[in-house]
Design a protein around this nucleic acid. Structure first.
Lengths: 210, 210
DNA sequence: GTCTATAAGCAGATAGAC
DNA sequence: GTCTATCTGCTTATAGAC
């Protein structure tokens, strides 16, 4: 046993920071142009690196792409327990919509990478979606069904209701530039997200109120 | 003046059919992989053509792409007058949501090409969006404002309401494979679109009812 | 209108020096 | 860990024969 620096096993802080910088830039570019539309060179150039350097940290472009998706998925899942953990339906709607919109505001690129992957037919992430997101959706729908059985809310098609909440909130990440364009401003501001939050929660709750 | 066949000026029916076939396949592929993710070869191969043949009909890949967007935009605009033409708000909501969902069902690829272009920051179509879609949105919002002033509906933020209707209906084109996956079926069926129509119209109308 | 040939460049990935 | 060099293949586009 030697005491040589175990660089390969426990990367130094500088290496980790670098890998995070690469992941962040990759996320930004994959969000706009998709897997096929991004080259390793275009990512490396922005960070003043060579594309060979990127391939030192990840074995292939596809592995880097999956690492980006893993990173986004981790944060997303951590925020999506609002409904099953809520005590009553109104609070569930409010904190769920708020959490989704916050994610759209704080990590729009992460959201867009997912949307693009799904639009392509999820060729590189379908297994994870099926294993992790699907059970979450079903748990949320059952929670609503329970509340409806208790007479706390009207019964509607809760699966499609979840689809509406998903699509209307994530639009404030994916379609934000278009929304800003139509509102005549360079980008969406805090007040716009607040207006969206109020409209969506109000709309959904009104449809569930008995 | 000769009587020679003016092939270059008035293409024969066979040529038109061919160009339409190219546009249709291009739309399908641009929808899944975006502008950068599609090669002329991959389009030509499916149609048993050479990529040089594609470049005979359009001067460049970008011109072909814009031709696809123009084609989609034409059909989309023709369907989006439901609100300004309606006599009263409930009918406006119903026919608008129905038209949007019908478009998602009948031309999902066309919808997705647009979504991808917007997600990329609309680098090749922003001028058209600004000139054609923006006035339509403003006209719709003003129509709602008028009805609100007459006391026919509650006043909400109608711009964000339009964003919600757009995003929730177009999700049934762009995210259809994911929705189908979560519902455990190979693809969405007529009944799913009908359920979506009922949920969305019900939800929106309930939020506007006085 | 369709073909072959070819230009000119960029892609991801690997090998090996340091 | 980072560098140069290189392989292999694919990209858009053009030129010119038929």
């Amino acid at each position: 046993m030697t005491v040589t620096a175990p660089a390969a096993r426990t990367p130094r802080a500088a290496t980790l920071r670098k890998q995070e910088a690469i992941l962040a830039e990759a996320e930004r570019q994959f969000a706009r142009f998709g897997f096929e539309g991004v080259s390793l060179d275009s990512i490396a150039t922005v960070l003043d690196l060579s594309r060979q350097n990127l391939l030192y940290h990840w074995p292939s472009k596809e592995e880097l792409y999956r690492a980006v998706l893993d990173s986004v998925m981790g944060e997303w899942m951590a925020n999506m327990n609002a409904i099953t953990e809520a005590e009553e339906p109104k609070a569930a709607i409010q904190s769920y919509v708020t959490a989704k919109l916050r994610f759209s505001r704080e990590r729009p690129s992460g959201n867009a990478v997912f949307t693009r992957e799904i639009m392509a037919g999820a060729p590189r992430y379908q297994d994870v979606l099926k294993a992790q997101v699907m059970p979450l959706l079903h748990a949320d729908v059952e929670r609503f069904e329970g509340w409806a059985a208790e007479g706390l809310i009207r019964r509607v098609d809760f699966t499609h209701l979840m689809f509406l909440i998903w699509s209307s909130t994530q639009a404030y990440a994916d379609l934000a530039p278009q929304f800003a364009l139509y509102m005549g401003k360079p980008r969406l501001e805090e007040a716009d997200f607040e207006a969206a939050r109020e409209l969506i929660t109000g709309l959904v709750w009104r449809s569930l109120e008995v």
